[in-house]
Design a protein around this nucleic acid. Structure first.
Length: 823
RNA sequence: GCCGGAGUGGCGGAACGGAAGACGCGGCGGACUCAAAAUCCGCUCUCCUUCAAGAGGAGGUGAGGGUUCAAAUCCCUCCUCCGGCACCA
């Protein structure tokens, strides 16, 4: 077979498609579908890992276009942020320059893959036309009381020289550079995502069947809802309240100490009145300045000291010693825990170390009843004892009764706690959107008036990271006048986390050129929600929570009507490749195992890349890129081209309607073809591209071996084959289609399935006897049970088994199997 | 520790209550060729019976148990691997 230059075919059609503006999105859709891949950072040298994401959305976009949908399939760049900035610093060029270079090169690479994007919708988040609206969004949140500034202990990456959101800290390390994160106290901007915690959790129910289970689970975990009780202790002799959150209020009579987090806001007050002032201060400083990684560390011993103060137990009026210890976190619950050593393992260990009382208040068969017999905490539910009027209730009943009781007495009651914390969005880096806030000595924090947006990011700034905001050193930027009092004032020197930009970009795609508004909500509501969102699993808790949050804020303002932004989520797997050292790793420039789109496409063509990527395995799983696999894809495409070329005249004769005359063999070919059509159709909609292609391969094999290549049935099958191939390998399919000298294939309709060609005349079904296959018979698929049994009984193989034996039962599954149960 | 997901040929994977291993890769044999590559055709889970062609039989989807006429698929116990969260009160 002659070698085919697929890349020449690519170029030809890519140009023609572009010249004819074939992927233009209609403004007002009749029957819409919004297909979106997560937009990338403009890193240089896009490789097959990227290609996988784009290919998946492209198959869907092309398929649904043929199905008659108006398809929105846009592309853009997540251009602000550390990746671009760090890369630029490394190369000693300006981030803007770096981004421009990469977006233009990247765009060329993507075009070479033949992805059917509407490029008129392209956006880049670092352009003022975009970040103006990111700033507008900030102001919206500010006005709604959802953006606030607070001094707080924040995660700080010593290598990136900036603070990080909790979501960007993975295993106590910086998500980007893997450096151990330290703590810093800084005044920072936060978005109040916690206000939406419950809705973010509740609304997952709309996504449960359409999002991958693991993503739903990760989000649930991340939000971390925990139902329990708030109970208010009092500081002895003072008018200070000490609220405690617990999930085990049934153990409240077993409280023998309280522990307050060292970084708790009340700790200053406690230090003031404590007899151990100095010791407390030094303990606090020691713990606070530790990074989380040091604080948790290997040993897990519970370090803490006595404050010298006591609390009053609200139910027993006992005096309870107050400790401060490193195992209690200020940001969870109320930052104060009640110590119940008999029924909580951590409290047990702490009590043992500090010689505190241990008091059993829950009993369960098989567990010690004497305090001194405990070797570890008994954490199970059981029967409450030594609990005053609540004694002899079960834990479950006790929890209910105590919740009601505490509420009545104004001492607390049912409460909910979340793990999710507010989203820290300030960054002490240059390459991001400025925060549209002015700090005035007279007026305080003043938002930039909307009419003054955007606050431009200045170009000439010494942007090397120094641990403080580079913009602070830019005189032209930082100095301004207060919009309220017109006195000299300073701009907020920080930039926004890039995840702010990416949490609303899917809305801007719908109306990217709007100069008046963030978007036209009428148009946006015609297109939203995103019907299919495709991207990597790494965004499960970061981008996908932030986007849902921002979308809900906009929903509450009436700007969007969809409850959730992403109807269906598909998490595609990674592309792996062996490195020189033999390890199997994610394809990346850094690992040195990247197969670049531009190199590959130049050599083998876009369709080979697309087909191989789609066929290599289920799209939600990782797969290993191998040269052998590539060859298989290439071989298949050559076979397809040869098949059509060799039978060109027949291919030209066929059309949308199946032939009216055919013999038995031809009919069985038509049946096969329409079964493949049905499977390909279903498989595309279910993201099973690998099996869709497998069935197309079967069809090609069958067509090769088909005897009567002059029959209308054969011609019709060729015709359907080319149509079915087009979402996967659009260039080759278009080339073959062009033999027919009609309209473009990509404007053609997806073929419809003729039911009459799904039914076979005769089928072969297996016969089971006592669960074992003992033979097979040929039957009419519509045959009645009695008829089928009769045929089976007369089959020689079966006769051997059932003669002289009593048949106890017979099962017939229509058209599938016949099963005898004999003695 | 808690919560998910997954274990199927030499490999990627199909089948998801009804003939396990579709399709592809690799391997083996053959055709073409001076030769090689490419291409095309055939075979390719294991064991047993049969001189062979051909056919027949037994076993087999991480391990063990269960439900069912029938289990890779459903249920229980266990093992292993992967992922998320984790001193979360």
């Amino acid at each position: 077979m002659e070698k085919i230059n697929f890349s020449e075919i690519d170029k030809k059609w890519q140009k023609i498609w572009e010249d004819n503006n074939l992927f233009k999105t209609p403004t007002h859709p009749k029957r819409k579908i919004y297909v979106l891949g997560m937009f990338p950072y403009p890193s240089g040298d896009l490789h097959m890992g990227h290609a996988r994401n784009y290919t998946i959305t492209d198959v869907l976009a092309r398929y649904f276009r043929m199905k008659g949908y108006d398809v929105l399939h846009p592309f853009g760049w997540d251009a602000f942020g550390l990746p671009a900035e760090n890369a630029a610093i490394k190369r000693n060029i300006h981030p803007k320059e770096w981004v421009l270079k990469n977006t233009s090169e990247g765009k060329e690479d993507i075009k070479k893959l033949g992805i059917s994007y509407d490029w008129s919708k392209e956006i880049s988040t670092c352009e003022p036309e975009y970040y103006k609206w990111t700033q507008w969004l900030f102001l919206l949140l500010y006005k709604e009381g959802l953006a606030y500034r607070k001094k707080a202990f924040v995660n700080f990456c010593p290598s990136c020289q900036t603070v990080l959101a909790d979501e960007q800290v993975v295993e106590k390390k910086c998500e980007r550079c893997k450096t151990d994160v330290t703590k810093k106290i800084l005044e920072q901007w936060f978005f109040k995502i916690t206000k939406y915690a419950d809705r973010l959790l509740e609304d997952l129910k709309y996504l449960e069947t359409k999002w991958p289970k693991r993503v739903i689970e990760m989000q649930k975990n991340w939000i971390g809802k925990s139902e329990g009780t708030k109970i208010i202790f009092k500081l002895k002799g003072k008018d200070v309240l000490l609220p405690v959150f617990t999930t085990r209020i049934d153990t409240v009579f077993g409280v023998t100490f309280l522990v307050i987090a060292p970084e708790h806001e009340l700790i200053e007050e406690i230090i003031k009145i404590s007899p151990y002032k100095d010791k407390l201060e030094s303990f606090r400083d020691k713990v606070i300045l530790k990074s989380d990684i040091e604080r948790i560390s290997e040993k897990k011993s519970k370090e803490g000291i006595f404050t010298g103060l006591y609390a009053i137990h609200p139910l027993t009026n006992e005096e309870i010693p107050i400790y401060t210890a490193d195992y209690v976190l200020a940001h969870y619950g109320t930052g104060i825990v009640m110590g119940v050593p008999a029924h909580d393992q951590r409290d047990f260990e702490f009590a043992k170390t500090h010689g505190l009382k241990i008091k059993i208040v829950i009993q369960k068969e098989g567990f010690p009843k004497e305090d001194s017999d405990l070797n570890s905490a008994m954490e199970d539910f059981g029967i409450m004892v030594n609990s005053g009027e609540f004694s002899f209730l079960s834990s479950e009943e006790g929890i209910k009764k105590l919740n009601t009781f505490l509420k009545e007495k104004n001492l607390g009651g049912y409460d909910v706690s979340y793990k999710i914390r507010d989203w820290l969005i300030s960054r002490q880096r240059y390459w991001g959107s400025p925060i549209p806030i002015i700090h005035c000595e007279t007026c305080g924090t003043v938002p930039v008036p909307e009419s003054d947006l955007p606050v431009y990011l200045p170009f000439n700034v010494d942007y090397l990271p120094k641990g403080k905001s580079p913009l602070e050193s830019s005189e032209e930027f930082i100095n301004t006048v207060c919009p309220k009092c017109n006195k000299k004032a300073k701009r907020d020197p920080d930039t926004m986390d890039t995840f702010v930009e990416s949490s609303w970009y899917f809305l801007r795609f719908i109306d990217p050129l709007n100069r008046e508004k963030i978007f036209d909500d009428k148009v946006v509501n015609e297109w939203m929600p995103v019907d299919i969102y495709v991207g990597g699993i790494e965004h499960a808790t970061v981008h996908l929570i932030y986007s849902r949050f921002i979308h809900k804020v906009l929903y509450d303002k009436g700007l969007v009507k969809s409850i959730e932004p992403f109807e269906k989520l598909f998490a595609q797997g990674m592309v792996l490749k062996r490195t020189l050292s033999g390890n199997l790793e994610m394809m990346s420039k850094r690992a040195g195992n990247a197969v670049l789109i531009r190199d590959f496409v130049k050599d083998k063509g876009a369709d080979v890349a697309r087909l191989y990527i789609l066929f290599a395995g289920p799209p939600d799983q990782d797969f290993e890129w191998t040269d052998e696999g590539v060859r298989g894809a290439e071989r298949f495409l050559m076979r397809v081209k040869k098949l059509i070329d060799d039978n060109r005249a027949m291919f030209l004769k066929a059309n949308e309607s199946p032939p009216e005359k055919f013999d038995l063999k031809e009919k069985s070919l038509l049946i096969k073809t329409y079964k493949v059509l049905k499977k390909v159709t279903e498989d595309i909609e279910n993201f099973k591209f690998n099996t869709a292609i497998a069935s197309l391969m079967e069809l090609v094999n069958e067509l090769y071996n088909f005897e009567n290549k002059k029959s209308a049935a054969f011609a019709h099958s060729l015709y359907l084959l080319v149509k079915m191939l087009s979402p996967f390998v659009p260039h080759l399919a278009e080339e073959l289609w062009s033999y027919r000298k009609g309209d473009f294939l990509i404007k053609e309709k997806w073929p419809s399935i003729y039911e009459k060609f799904l039914k076979e005349e005769k089928i072969v079904i297996p016969i089971q006897i006592n669960g074992k296959i003992r033979g097979q018979i040929e039957i009419d698929p519509e045959a009645q049970e009695e008829e089928v049994i009769e045929i089976a009984k007369n089959n020689v193989n079966i006769k051997r088994y059932i003669d002289q034996r009593k048949i106890k039962k017979i099962f017939y599954v229509k058209g599938k199997i016949l099963s005898f149960v004999i003695e």
